[in-house]
């Protein structure tokens, strides 16, 4: 029975991939200069705006709720919770969207590299997949149970996202060329050297 099930599973998996291959429309151009710049923007947004530890602590700190509960009437508490839930959902959606852009950049970039490490690629693919799933889960949890329902999952998402940012940062390192800093340094404050 087990060999039969294995064979059926293999056959079905192959059919599914063939279906995807047959249905695939034109693949967008990847690895273009525009993508490098977009990926740099995503990395910046994640590292500077969405993932800093103090920002995440602030957003998911229960003490805010306790303070509002102690100081304000129930309807203000409800309003606070609604707003915090909305911000949490926006946060996780934004993290997911930026991570998707980074993933797209990574896939477009690494397929050309002849010296990629197969294990690293598998680990990265697993990390990207896990993070995207966690983001979807967080979105559902925030929606149904509020922003304070899964603090460990938030930490886990932030840690994985930070790890992926570090890897992507290495791929984009050449955009921080010293020559660019030198040009920036020539400009006096309040004007630009052209």
């Amino acid at each position: 029975m087990i060999p039969l099930l294995l064979s059926l599973a293999l056959g079905l998996a192959l059919f599914f991939l063939l279906y995807r291959l047959a249905r695939r429309s034109r693949v967008p151009a990847e690895g273009s200069a525009y993508q490098f710049v977009e990926a740099r923007g995503s990395l910046h947004a994640l590292q500077r705006e969405l993932l800093p530890r103090d920002f995440i602590d602030r957003l998911f700190d229960r003490r805010d709720l306790e303070f509002v509960s102690a100081q304000a009437p129930a309807d203000v508490r409800q309003l606070f919770l609604t707003e915090r839930k909305r911000i949490s959902i926006l946060w996780v959606q934004r993290v997911r969207s930026e991570i998707l852009k980074l993933m797209q950049f990574h896939r477009g970039h690494s397929r050309f590299h002849s010296k990629i490490s197969v294990l690293t690629e598998i680990r990265l693919a697993a990390d990207f997949a896990a993070l995207l799933i966690i983001c979807r889960m967080l979105e559902a949890i925030f929606y149904f149970r509020g922003p304070y329902a899964a603090p460990h999952l938030v930490d886990s998402a932030a840690a994985t996202a930070a790890r992926l940012c570090t890897v992507s940062e290495k791929s984009l390192a050449f955009l921080n060329a010293p020559a660019l800093r030198a040009v920036a340094g020539e400009s006096p404050r309040g004007s630009a050297t052209i």
Binding site: L6, S7, L10, G11, A13, L14, L17, L18, R20, L21, R24, R26, V27, P28, E30, Q104, R107, G108, S110, R111, A125
Partner: peptide
Amino acid sequence: AVEALFLIGTLSVLSYYGIS
């Protein structure tokens, strides 16, 4: 089975890297 696995591997890579 080996043929199927190899095809699955190749098609998965084509799909993952978005290769046309």
